[in-house]
């Protein structure tokens, strides 16, 4: 069992968990993910790691409670244990040869962009992070982001905090004002990553994105996480999760990620099963 040793609400829907998983923590690197299962009846879902502590044998995950499994996960408290955590999975972020990078995060994606930004910063790379949120109330981890990057720029869609506008607006400003980036990293909703890639294509800047897809085993066996990169089908679990964003077929990715949404909506209408009685862990 994988014990939860820390839990912190970051905003009304986003939560940080620290979980004992020594086998994962020993080898984890920025950009990699885990698969967890809450309990015997749970789905296996992939989550990018937000951090890890090899000495303590713990990993960090940050999730937004929006789906069935994340709502269930929200019921777990410090001292409870998850049935399964497996990893680290996927290829780590490539940093070799980079000197100056812009990291763009959107919403919960910021939490997953953060270990990449921090990892690069720790490796001596100059990192400008653009952290985009809808509004002031949902801004998370500002202090951590500031400490782990060279420059932090916060944007909100409604202008209630930081600069008003989308992350792409800020990125455009930075590029136009003469900041020369070797690479842009974007982690967030697929639609945001798509627009970042459209923008950077104009400036011919290589852009790396981290993709999530439905998957079961995470080791290449099921093939459920196939994504089109250029003209090729790749598996997000073993070939990714990071890919050259300018080669991603975004419309297909968005479509594939909608596969089980109808079923999940149906399940979500049975809130009792998710939060009360039978399925509540003991």
């Amino acid at each position: 069992m994988y014990k939860i040793v820390g839990k912190r609400r970051l905003n009304s829907t986003i939560t940080w968990l620290e979980i004992e998983a020594p086998l994962v923590a020993r080898k984890a690197k920025p950009g990699q993910f885990i698969i967890l299962r809450t309990d015997e009846y749970g789905e296996r879902i992939p989550l990018t790691m937000a951090g890890h502590n090899s000495e303590k044998g713990t990993i960090d995950i940050i999730y937004q409670a929006v789906g069935k499994t994340t709502l269930l996960l929200d019921q777990f408290e410090v001292g409870d244990a998850l049935a399964d955590v497996v990893g680290p999975l996927g290829k780590p972020t490539e940093m070799e040869g980079l000197k100056r990078v812009a990291v763009v995060g959107g919403g919960t994606g910021n939490a997953l962009a953060y270990p990449i930004a921090k990892g690069m910063h720790d490796a001596g790379i100059q990192v400008d992070m653009i952290a985009g949120f809808q509004t002031k109330d949902v801004v998370i981890l500002e202090d951590e982001f500031r400490a782990g990057t060279t420059n932090l720029y916060i944007t909100t869609d409604d202008g209630t905090y930081g600069e008003k506008g989308f992350t792409t607006d800020k990125l455009k400003d930075l590029i136009e004002s003469g900041n020369a980036y070797d690479e842009v990293v974007a982690v967030g909703p697929p639609i945001m990553m798509k627009f970042v890639c459209q923008l950077t294509k104009k400036y011919d800047i290589k852009t790396v994105v981290s993709l999530t897809a439905y998957m079961v085993d995470g080791t290449g066996m099921c093939g459920g996480c196939r994504v089109v990169i250029g003209d090729e089908n790749k598996f997000a679990c073993v070939d990714g999760p990071e890919f050259d964003g300018q080669l991603v077929d975004w419309d297909e990715l968005i479509q594939r990620n909608s596969f089980y949404q109808e079923q999940e909506k149906e399940d979500m209408s049975h809130i009792c099963r998710l939060t009360g009685g039978v399925r509540y862990h003991d």
Partner: peptide, 29 residues
């Protein structure tokens, strides 16, 4: 290991499974 696909048009449509994935969802999961 890894499942094979035929490389024909439409293999990434919703409702196309590898046997590995379909069977794993049913048997293991």
């Amino acid at each position: 290991g890894l499942p094979q696909f035929m490389n024909i048009p439409g293999e990434n449509l919703l409702g196309v499974y590898s046997a590995n994935e379909y069977l794993t969802r049913i048997n293991l999961m």
